[in-house]
Design a protein around this nucleic acid. Structure first.
Lengths: 347, 347
DNA sequence: TCAGTTATCCAAAGCGCTTTGAAAAACGGT
DNA sequence: ACCGTTTTTCAAAGCGCTTTGGATAACTGA
């Protein structure tokens, strides 16, 4: 069923049928209804590629699957993010074109997107510090929104980000107020912008309280469960172990919990833990009674906001970049408590 | 840069340039190289939509984001699955078209895919028992491969599945051999085919050992961490609590661990746990020293296999359905051990 | 040299839609 | 009845590619 046969069946021209279905005013109400009914009844849908070719728009948003090159790990927030994004993109008639990067060259994919006219815009995930993708996308003129920011890039671009610095600063302050002095940081890869900023917030809070950040208590890697486990186990074996840990991912926080369990320690009493919580649908921290004290920010909502921003950017490219900074919520659970007495005295 | 300008720049016809780039024999080696070099140098890429319109193929595979309608939860295996699938699809020149289902009607999306010619085939996730999507896709003639099977559907269709029945039967037998008699099942939603089959395997093993499955020890829901936690906590409070639990997801198994920790019990000693493990990249169970004894099957590899199968199915639709049953590996970790003495005696 | 192949290239049609520019029909006012 | 407007409809061009059916050029062997 294509436009031609539908038009013939109705005894109308393709022009009229097309206009009737696309809401143009140059068609009588009666004809429009007749066309719409026939289209619905015959299950007519305009061919995507033909429509795209004629209009010059793909109605597709490009999205590269965010995998770390180190361990081929897929970002665990990807599912929730894309669910949020595609929900709002769908409202505007867009679908997501998902692709994987062969090797390491995401820029190549973007160039190809552009040259092939495959997508109308892209969402950029997991920006690094000084991320070179932003300059590239600006250069080739493909509309894009970044999920996060990139420290060191000072050309204007559209982004939506969580205030990571502030979130981890507050979390650290919270622990300091509870009497903690030895506070560890189990962070993501610090060439990633979010991790870089979280460390900054952590460090600033320590320094503001007159504490010196201790390199022994700071580590950075891919945020797996195992990473949290191993690092915690190691830190507990130190001469002067931490009384609290701040962690960048709930998955690693689960690893922390496992290490504590193994050591026979009670989380929240013997050692306090605060984690960032992306509010993943399959790993809820609990609403009323959170397991972990956490800096919470829904990644799914971020997906929705990025989708809206990108749609707007595509429809009005000259209105300048869209930026939005989201504040994470500090939710207090049972994983934090006052610093153990002796530790507080020693500190 | 389009074909026309490229052809003009080369002083050739569009036909020749197109043929040169697509590897047709009717073009001299010298001309071909000249064309290829110019195309590379000028960054020419054929427009996706124009090419698709001319060839009648979209070079896109449809994929609906697998969210449960109940809790809007995105399937946690989705990221790894799609990473595997898109890797192998990319090799054959396909990208993934990702879309969300408005409301609950996935069939509507498939019909639209077909009518719009938006995709060349689809991957069907999370089949239920008697899944009606299979009949629909057969009816509308859209090539598809199912990730899993659907008990009760007896028309032929292509699928790739883990042998869930066998996996859970073996896991249950393993526990029985360790002396366990009170074995609980924390399962996924049993209208899902995989959960239905796992329960079958579990039940069969019990019955083969002369044990009667106890409804009190069987529960089914969305497989979150919290579900594992709450159910375990509840089961531990029973008069005759289980000495072992079989669980359908490593996330829920983590919840089980938390409940045990809370109750002051040691996993593997006081209570044994076996979980299914999809070998998620962000939640590794450990290779040499697995945390959980598990029935392991890589969902990423499943994605790769499904991609290959679908590509083949599209290129040779008449060769009949492709089916493949994968055996899960039983890996023994530290979460299982002999049944506690008194429980074994009582049982 | 010339007819018969074969290698090489091309003009034009077609994929299914939108959209421009024009024509036909309907309308309103005199 | 007639003319100027407005409403309604349409034919045809164009989006950028592939592919069919020729045409031309370059080789053969006699």
């Amino acid at each position: 069923m294509n436009l031609k046969t539908l038009a013939e069946a109705l005894g109308l021209s393709q022009t009229t049928v097309s206009r009737a279905l696309n809401g143009y005013p140059e068609v009588s109400a009666a004809t429009r209804r007749r066309v719409e009914e026939a289209a619905a009844q015959m299950g007519y849908r305009p061919n995507s590629r033909a429509k795209g070719l004629a209009t010059g728009r793909a109605m597709l948003i490009g999205q590269v699957i965010p995998t770390s090159t180190e361990h081929e790990m897929v970002n665990p927030v990807f599912g929730d993010f894309v669910a949020g994004a595609s929900q709002n993109l769908a409202r505007a008639g867009y679908d997501i074109l998902l692709t994987r990067v062969p090797g390491d060259d995401e820029g190549k994919v973007y160039r190809e997107f552009r040259a092939r006219g495959a997508v109308d815009g892209v969402i950029v995930q997991a920006p690094a510090v000084n991320d070179e993708r932003i300059a590239l996308l600006n250069e080739i003129g493909l509309p894009f929104v970044v999920h996060g920011r990139s420290t060191g890039v000072d050309v204007p671009y559209s982004w939506i980000d969580v205030n990571n610095t502030q979130a981890f600063r507050r979390a650290t302050e919270f622990l300091i107020q509870l009497g903690h002095r030895r506070i560890a940081l189990i962070n993501g890869l610090e060439r990633m912008d979010f991790a870089f900023r979280r460390r900054k917030g952590y460090t600033r809070a320590l320094e503001a309280a007159g504490l010196t950040p201790d390199p022994i208590l700071m580590c950075t890697d891919e945020m797996t469960e195992e990473f949290g486990f191993k690092k915690t186990r190691h830190m507990l074996s130190l001469d002067d172990p931490p009384t609290a840990i701040i962690c960048s991912s709930i998955l690693s926080a689960i690893g922390i919990r496992r290490a504590l369990q193994e050591a026979g320690l009670v989380m929240g009493r013997d050692l306090s833990v605060i984690t960032h919580d992306d509010d993943l649908s399959y790993l809820k921290n609990g609403q009323d009674l959170p397991i972990f004290t956490a800096t919470r920010s829904s990644v799914r909502m971020a997906g929705e906001l990025l989708a809206d921003a990108l749609v707007q950017l595509i429809s009005a490219p000259d209105e300048g970049p869209i930026t939005r900074l989201l504040e994470a919520q500090l939710v207090v659970g049972s994983s934090t408590g006052p610093a153990p007495i002796q530790a507080a005295r020693l500190g």
